[in-house]
Design a protein around this nucleic acid. Structure first.
Lengths: 223, 223
DNA sequence: GTCGGTTGGATTGGATACATTCGCACCGGA
DNA sequence: TCCGGTGCGAATGTATCCAATCCAACCGAC
C-alpha cells in the first residue's frame, strides 16, 4: 500500500510517503477549512470513517492531530467537534505574533539569506495576483509570514509561526479581509517594504515595519 | 473510569477529566523534556504501552499528538522517535528567547495580574536563596522566565517558553552560569527590575529591560 | 572476500471486537 | 404538570487481532 522500492528515480527524490493517517488528516482539514464541516459540527467517527473508506483507528489519530492544531476539540466520551473559532483565542494568537514576528524579521535582516528573500518575494508576488480572491489571498498572506519566520533561520521561531498560522486563526482573518478586498493590496505593499528592509540588512527597520504591520491588523476586522 | 456524576461539589469545579490518552501524553512529554527519553530514541510502542499499563491504541494517539508538537517524529512503517530537535546549538533557543520574552514582558505589564506578579517575585526570592548552588540556580532562573511568560496571559507564549526552557537546552546555560557564581545574584537584580516594571504597568520599560537582560546573557559564557 | 538475494523474527499500521459512557425517550409518582 | 428514575440505542474509548513492512542475519555465487 505504501512505497514500492522503485529503482532509478531520475532525481533522488525524498519521496515522502503518506500514511493513511496523513490522507485522512488532509481530507478532514480540507473539509473544515472549506466550511463543508461547519464550526461546532459533531464529528461522528463511524460515519466519517465509512465515508473516507478507512477504519476508525487512523481516523481517530488524524482527529487527535487536528485537535492539537486547534481545529477540532475532544470532549471525553462525547467525541470530537469542529472548534468554535473563539475570538479570545484569535487575539491570543495575534498577540503572540506581535511578540514573535518582529524579532524574526530582525534576525532575517541580520542573516540576509538570498534564497529566503527570494521565497518572500515570490509570496508577495502571489499575494498581488491573488488580491481579490479571499481564500487565495489568505493563503498568500500566510505564506509570506511563514516565509518571514523561516528567513530568520531560527527553527524554533519557524515552528512557532507555523503553529500560530494554523487555519483556525487565519480563516476568520481571511473573512474579515475578504470584506475589504483592497486591503490585500495594501498588505502586499507593507510586505514588500519588510522584504526590502531585510534584503538591505536594515535590522531596525525590518523589526519596526513588521511590528507596525502586524500590530495594525488585529484579528477583528479593523474599522 | 472517568467521571462519576457527583452531587453537590462544594465549588462548582470545571473538573476537567483526563482520558487515558491525555495521561499518556503527559507522561511521555515529561519523559522527553526531562531527558529521560533522549533525543533520537526509538519509541517502541509495545514496550512503552506495557510500561505505562495501557494498550497501544491510546499510546499511538498520544504519540501523534506529540508529533504535531514536534517532540517526536513519525517515519512510515518505521515508528516514532524522539525528535532530534537539537537545532545545532542552543544559540537558536537563545535568539528565540530574545525575540519572545520582551514581547511577553510587554503583555504582562499591560495585564498586571497580581497573582502572576506574586509568582515572579517568589521566583526571584528563590533565586536569591539559591545563588551559588548551580543546579538550583538554574532551576530558579528557569522558573522566573517561565513565570514571566505565563504572566503575559498568552497561552501560546507560555507554551513556547516552556519549549525553549527545556532542561536539555538550559543545562548548558547553567554550566556557563556556574562558572561565574556571582552572576546569579546580578541576574536576580535584573529580574527584580523587570518585575517592578511589570507591576507598575510600564510596558515599554518591561520590554526594554527584558530585552537587555536576555540579550546580555548569551548561552556561551560572555567574554 | 564481497556483493546480492533470501529467510525469519520483530514491529508497525490498520481493522475489528468489546466494554463504558452518554443521550434521550419513556414512565411512575408527587 | 413537573420532577426524578430507568432502560435502551448509539457512539465513544480501549483492547485485541491480523496483515504488511522493515531489519538483520544467514547463505550462496561471483
Amino acid at each position: 500500500m505504501y512505497a514500492k522500492t522503485m529503482s532509478a528515480q531520475p532525481a533522488i527524490a525524498p519521496l515522502h510517503i503518506q500514511s493513511v493517517v496523513d490522507h485522512v488528516y488532509s481530507a478532514l482539514r480540507e473539509r473544515i477549512l472549506s466550511g463543508d464541516l461547519p464550526r461546532g459540527a459533531k464529528l461522528r467517527q463511524a460515519s466519517l470513517a465509512d465515508e473516507l473508506g478507512v477504519s476508525r483507528t487512523p481516523l481517530r489519530e488524524a482527529l487527535r492531530r487536528l485537535s492539537t492544531e486547534g481545529l477540532v476539540e475532544f470532549s471525553p466520551n462525547r467525541g470530537a467537534t469542529v472548534s468554535e473559532l473563539d475570538f479570545g483565542d484569535m487575539r491570543h494568537a495575534w498577540s503572540a505574533r506581535v511578540a514573535l514576528e518582529p524579532g524574526a524579521a530582525r534576525l532575517a535582516a541580520q542573516r540576509r539569506d538570498p534564497e529566503s528573500i527570494a521565497v518572500m518575494r515570490d509570496a508577495v508576488k502571489l499575494q498581488r495576483q491573488a488580491a481579490g480572491d479571499g481564500m487565495d489571498s489568505f493563503a498568500a498572506n500566510r505564506s509570506f509570514h511563514l516565509a518571514l519566520a523561516a528567513a530568520s533561520g531560527n527553527p524554533h521561531l519557524t515552528r512557532f509561526a507555523e503553529m500560530l498560522w494554523v487555519p483556525r486563526i487565519g480563516v476568520p482573518i481571511y473573512q474579515a479581509q475578504a470584506a475589504e478586498p483592497r486591503g490585500a493590496a495594501g498588505w502586499a505593499d507593507e510586505h514588500e517594504g519588510i522584504v526590502d528592509a531585510i534584503a538591505s540588512g536594515d535590522a531596525d527597520a525590518a523589526e519596526r515595519l513588521t511590528r507596525e504591520h502586524v500590530s495594525a491588523h488585529p484579528p477583528v476586522a479593523p474599522s
